[in-house]
Amino acid sequence: MNSLLNLKEIEKRAIQSTYQDGLMDIQYGLIVACMAIFIYRPESGYSPLNIILAIVGIVLTNLLFMVGKRMITLPRMGMVKFGEMRHKKNRRMAIVLGVFILAQVVLVIFTSLGLFNSQIGSWIDKVLGNHSGSLLVVSAIGSLMVGVSIIVMSYFTDFDRGFYISILMALAVFLMIFLNRPLWPILIGLVIIIPGVVLLVRFLKRYPIIKEGGEHD
């Protein structure tokens, strides 16, 4: 029996226990791989197929996560519905992420203006020196947006592994845009997935399915 009694800690421990299955890590890793398809610009030209494939990939990843939670985690860990403490945290997260999304929309609008306005575009190229300089800036901004969003989500959801995952995801986005080679983000996705798989195997060993009245080993 655990003898520590601190309500905030109890709640934090309860939510963190739901991440022990490694499914979240696997989901993030697969999302990175899907993003690689989304951002990759083939020599033949960027096509709507990139967007369609990425969306299908992300939908499948989320479905896999939900099925995993339902079939693997719930029968072993039991279901929990968090209370007002967690709802408050989620509301704060929604506000912060909302501000972030708004900032990203503004940034995209400015980028589009730059793209379709040759004067602004040439001014940016002049300021940054050359095309590779502007690509560097776009890569840095893209990785910053993804990295910071995941850090914010990890902080509010008490998902500690999310902090290193956010750095890896930011790096993946940077390499995806700057180098335009999907191999790197896919490798980074694997780096995120592997600990998730290890955690999943450990989880399955630690929590076998038990029937009512029985106990774990």
Binding site: I10, A14, M77, G78, V80, K81, G83, I210, E212, H216
Partner: peptide, 17 residues
């Protein structure tokens, strides 16, 4: 204390926690 911070939990979850 656990039930105070959650809205609802299954027996298995309470046992594990």
């Amino acid at each position: 204390a656990l039930l105070y911070v959650v809205e609802k939990a299954e027996f298995l979850f309470v046992m594990n926690q």
